[in-house]
Amino acid sequence: MNGLMNMASAVGPLAAGWGVHSVWMRRRLSVARHDPLSGLWTRDAFEHRAARLLARHPHVVVVLVDLDGFKALNDSHGHAAGDAAIRATARSLAAALAPYRAAVVGRLGGDEFAAAVVLPYPIASSWLLRGVHDEITAPFRHDGRRLTVGASIGGALSSAVPAGAGRELPALLRLADEAMYMAKRGGGGCQTAAFTSRHTTTAGRRTGRPGTHTTPRGEAS
């Protein structure tokens, strides 16, 4: 009996130590998966969770958001104002998507954001995009001033494309990217993707976007 008690007293601190370590590791992983400025999921974490939503629900809209006038805001008011715009955009996305059943939101980098949102029925996608645009372009306060940014937004609805690879996340992101580009060419606002691709793509993004180019054979380089 004394032997069992001695063993328990020895194992107890070790188990407690592993428990603390496990909690610490989970917290570190959670921090690594969240963008430190916006608090949103990072690209990899977003893509993992968005793919799960697409696998489980029939109507999911994939949304890409690119801020308009962000560089001018940085140049005019400083990088702190740009950081405030990123945080305000994250809050706006959370507010716009709060009424929906399930949503995943991430910051892809710079002033580009993405979301995957489960819809009750397909027609809700246009309402969602307008709501996101209205929230993001509303004024926010920084250093005692009211500032604004514009937004170009593209959306691709999973149930609006043929079944198969076209409903997987990379394909829907490409369609949303094309729709966002069309919105930007029109001066901002929101645009829903059509069924077929209007632009060539390189490494999963529309050819011609910063950071994408092709070799003479048309391969990504």
Rank of each mutant, 00 (worst) to 15 (best):
M1R: 13
S9L: 15
A10M: 11
A16I: 00
W18P: 03
W18Q: 13
W24V: 05
M25T: 06
R26P: 10
L29Q: 13
S30N: 05
R33V: 07
D35R: 06
P36G: 04
L37C: 10
L37T: 10
W41E: 10
T42Q: 09
D44G: 11
F46L: 00
A51L: 00
R52D: 15
L64I: 11
K71M: 05
L73N: 03
L73F: 05
S76H: 08
A81D: 03
A81L: 04
D83M: 02
A90E: 06
R91M: 02
L93G: 04
L93P: 02
A96C: 09
L97R: 03
A102V: 08
A103G: 05
G109E: 05
G109I: 02
A124R: 03
S126E: 14
H133A: 13
D134Q: 13
E135R: 09
I136K: 02
P139Q: 08
G144P: 13
G144R: 11
R146E: 13
T148S: 14
A151H: 00
L157F: 06
A163R: 11
A163L: 11
E168N: 06
P170S: 08
L172I: 09
L173H: 05
A176N: 02
A176Y: 04
Y181F: 05
G186T: 07
Q191M: 14
T192V: 14
A193C: 08
A194H: 12
H199Q: 12
P216C: 09
G218L: 03
E219F: 13
